[in-house]
Design a protein around this nucleic acid. Structure first.
Length: 270
DNA sequence: GTACTTGTTGAACG
DNA sequence: TCGTTCAACAAGTA
């Protein structure tokens, strides 16, 4: 499941490979993957150059040199793969000249691409998404204020709420709670300042580390070069229910929180 | 065959 | 209006 570190990895790789290049063709194999009519999409995209690639929350933003941007979300199983082979799950193919192609693959078809006006983006993004956890302006005070806005919400769910904080999903919310030694079920209002500080540090640390390893390929995430991320061996709780806690050796518990699987250590997390 | 996986949206509830 | 919960979406794996 691509979350901030995975999307950030793809963003950096896309910037390296396609920024400055001209989109010479687009092949749409699954029309429903587009959130813009096919005709409009092709008209707005073909012939344009990629000015830059950005990430906001889990969204990738491909800014074009004609005032439009492609807003794209990988959701659960989306992949951008450079020079791969098209296959059953390939939904859109971008061509950059006669040789280079980028495939958008998406097994579960939740992902999308949408053409928007670049100038409209800042307002839209500010409305829909909370602060970026790795930005300098995201301070522990900021996190504290954010948590106060939903005092009864369980901390793991607060961390995953995109309107409160951007980019954290089910994997890193669980990892951050473990690292902070706080139970995912604790209500926001029950957290003491030193616990909020630990959660803050943990979010930043786990995200930074995960980016360093190119993200986690827990399900089917692949980077632009079709390679898996290297962070899975570093995950402490996600996907490890009934296994031994790496810190204390006791058996990790699994519960459901907001309909999502949640693993934690009863002994280490309070 | 059944249960389970998840990011986001939109409906429904109080 | 707001916060919150929950089903739905899709398609694969165990």
């Amino acid at each position: 499941m691509p979350e901030l570190p995975e999307v950030e990895t793809i963003k950096r790789q896309l910037n390296r490979e396609i920024t400055g290049k001209k989109i010479t063709g687009v092949e749409v194999l699954a029309v429903r993957t587009l959130r813009t009519s096919k005709a409009q999409f092709l008209e707005g995209v073909v012939g344009a150059k990629i000015k830059s690639v950005e990430r906001r929350a889990k969204l990738l933003i491909l800014n074009l040199n004609n005032g439009s941007s492609i807003l794209t979300h990988l959701k659960m199983t989306g992949q951008y793969v450079y020079d791969g082979e098209a296959h059953k799950h390939t939904r859109v193919i971008f061509s950059f000249g006669p040789k280079l192609k980028i495939m958008f693959n998406d097994m579960r078809r939740f992902g999308y691409l949408k053409l928007v006006k670049t100038v409209d983006l800042p307002k839209f993004l500010a409305n829909e998404y909370g602060p970026e956890p790795l930005e300098k302006s995201f301070t522990v005070q900021k996190l504290s204020e954010i948590l106060k806005r939903r005092p009864n919400m369980k901390i793991k769910q607060s961390l995953m709420e995109q309107k409160l904080i951007a980019g954290i999903g089910n994997i890193y919310a669980q990892e951050a709670c473990f690292m902070a030694r706080v139970l995912p079920t604790r209500s926001a209002k029950s957290l003491k300042p030193d616990e909020i500080q630990k959660i803050y540090d943990s979010i930043r640390k786990v995200m930074t580390e995960a980016i360093k390893y190119g993200g986690s390929s827990a399900e089917n995430y692949l980077n632009l070069y079709g390679k898996e991320g290297g962070f899975v061996p570093h995950l402490k709780v996600y996907g490890r229910g009934k296994e031994k806690c790496r810190r204390c050796g006791s058996i990790l518990k699994t519960i459901k929180l907001g309909g999502r699987g949640t693993v934690y250590c009863e002994k280490c997390q309070k």
